[in-house]
Each structure stands twice: as structure tokens, then as C-alpha cells.
């Protein structure tokens, strides 16, 4: 436990006070079933996420990880409290956030390239773009940009014209990230984005996301249930616990801690002593699993 305490108190290298990108004040979310039973998923959550942070949200199933993400997105309103993104309150889903879900992340009726081009194209020419005179020139330009984006994500040029159903899960998520990034969102929200992938694909995507984050420094909120993934990616870890009546209106945020960044690649880092200790500590914290007697 001393380790964890040390971790949380540690001064981070990027500790300069920065602009608050996402702010949640006293946010609760309660669902009401048709029978009239209420179920509280989030309770009294206060969060300030600074611009450029890589926040990982961890917790067992049903603890409200995804709900938190949906609230930040604006897909649902909170039952209590207020949410701000980029200094403005969140009312509906809009383009402030980029979004990469676990499944259905691509439009199945568009090729990889079309998927990536879709956002900027629609934003510039809403409805019947082909009627506009400048559209074709714009599309050409956009195509180059989108292709570059795809290449940057580690896809080959030949993959650009594939439809999603012909791509592997890893490829689909690469395209989905490209699709979100091309909009240059200030916040990226990833909901279990790599949970359905096999371990090696997962690791390469994790590396990719880290690289991108280092280059472009978007504010990341990354929801996962995988502790190793969380520790490897995040600069800040938020652990949520399932809310019970016993908590009596107190928050269900179990832990909120900053993590030390390491430049070691995952495969090397995961064997270091600190990493293993930290991992077992966080596992116990979030899932109640204890590895050491």
C-alpha cells in the first residue's frame, strides 16, 4: 500500500496547471426501470480532466464506466450535476468529442477511405454535396489527407477501398481512430475500444494510440476493464466501483490517481517489478482480486 500512496502523491513532470478540458460537478445518474425501480449507476462524481491528459477509467462490469462516457458525450443527460467540455456545457452529442466504440465503429456501407472522409466532407457540404461546384476539388484534397491518415494508422494503401466486413477487428479500429482523429477533436473518447481484439493486435493498437497521443496531445478518456492496458496507457487512472445503497449518496469513484509515464514499450515494461506490483494493487482495488496472500 505504501507503493500506491507514493504513486498518488508523486509530483508529475507535467504538473503545470493547465486548462480544464472536461469538468464534472456532482454528477449522478439514476435509471428508472419500467416497474419503477431505480438504479443508481453514478453518484456524486467530481472530475476535472486537464487538456492533454490520458485518463483511463477502470472498473468492474456495471460500475458506470460506459455511462460516464455517455454523459461526457452528451448521449444522455445526467440526473444531477453539470458537465462541461471545452468550457461549454454538454447538451447533445456534438463534434467536440471524437468517439471510438468497441463495436459498430464504422459505417458498414462505406469503404475505409470513405469512412475517414465522411466527417470532414459532411461538415463542409451537408446534404447533396455533388451540387456544389467546389466539391470535386475538395474531395481530391480530402482524399490525400484521409489516405495519409490511414497510412499513419498502419494500414496499407490497398486497404483503403475495403468495406468494413472485409477487414479484421484490428483494422476496423485503426480506421475508426483515423475517422475520429481527422476531425481534430479536442477530446477523444474510447469505449472498450480494444476489448474484442486478440492480444498482439491489442498491444500494437495500444502502442499506436500512445504514439498519437504523444504527437497530437488530445485529451483522452479511455474506458477499459483490463488493468494492464489501463496502467500501460494512462497518465491518470480513475477506478469506479459499483454503487450500493450503503454508500448513501457518496461518490462511487474509488480511486483517482496519477501514474508515472514510462517510455518503455509494453512488452518490456510489463515485466518490471513496479509494474507487477502496481497491477496487483489496482486489480485488488478495482475487482477485489488479491494475488498475494
Amino acid at each position: 500500500m505504501a507503493l500506491a500512496a507514493a504513486l498518488m502523491q508523486e509530483e508529475l513532470p507535467i504538473a503545470r496547471k493547465r486548462r480544464c478540458e472536461i469538468g464534472l460537478k456532482g454528477v449522478s445518474k439514476t435509471y428508472r426501470s419500467e416497474k419503477g425501480e431505480t438504479r443508481t449507476v453514478l453518484s456524486a462524481v467530481n472530475l476535472e480532466i486537464e487538456a492533454g491528459e490520458f485518463v483511463v477509467v477502470l472498473g468492474e462490469t456495471g460500475c458506470g464506466k460506459s455511462t460516464l462516457l455517455r454523459l461526457i458525450l452528451g448521449e444522455e443527460p445526467p440526473s444531477f450535476g453539470s458537465i462541461q467540455v471545452s468550457g461549454k456545457p454538454v447538451k447533445q452529442i456534438d463534434a467536440r468529442c471524437g468517439y471510438v466504440p468497441q463495436k459498430y465503429s464504422l459505417f458498414p456501407n462505406r469503404t475505409a477511405l470513405q469512412n475517414v472522409m465522411f466527417g470532414p466532407r459532411t461538415a463542409k457540404y451537408p446534404l447533396m454535396p455533388w451540387l456544389h461546384p467546389g466539391f470535386h476539388a475538395y474531395r481530391k484534397e480530402l482524399k490525400t489527407e484521409a489516405t495519409q491518415q490511414l497510412l499513419r494508422m498502419g494500414l496499407r494503401a490497398a486497404d483503403a477501398n475495403k468495406y468494413p466486413h472485409k477487414m479484421s477487428g484490428g483494422m476496423q479500429q485503426r480506421v475508426a481512430i483515423a475517422q475520429a482523429l481527422i476531425m481534430k477533436p479536442s477530446v477523444m473518447l474510447m469505449d472498450e475500444a480494444f476489448s474484442a481484439l486478440d492480444p498482439s493486435t491489442r498491444i500494437s493498437l495500444q502502442e499506436l494510440v500512445l504514439d498519437i497521443w504523444r504527437e497530437q496531445r488530445p485529451t483522452m478518456v479511455f474506458v477499459t476493464h483490463n488493468v494492464a492496458e489501463a496502467l500501460f496507457l494512462g497518465t491518470r487512472l480513475i477506478v469506479l466501483g459499483a454503487y450500493s445503497e450503503m454508500m448513501g449518496g457518496k461518490t462511487n469513484v474509488i480511486a483517482d490517481m496519477h501514474l508515472q509515464r514510462s517510455d518503455l514499450p509494453y512488452l518490456e515494461r510489463r515485466h518490471t517489478k513496479e509494474f507487477i506490483e502496481l497491477q496487483s494493487y489496482v486489480e485488488e482495488l478495482s475487482y477485489g482480486i488479491s494475488c498475494q496472500p
Binding site: 463534434a95 468517439y99 459532411t122 451537408p126 475520429a180
Partner: peptide
Amino acid sequence: PREQIVKAFTLKCSNLDVAY
């Protein structure tokens, strides 16, 4: 899937864009 509609809105789609 709901994800499709959410995704579309995060890509600056208008309501009609999402529908059509």
C-alpha cells in the same frame, strides 16, 4: 446500432445527415 448514430454526430453530422 446506437453507436452509428452517436459516431455520426461526433463527426459533425446534422440531423438530416444522420437520417439520410
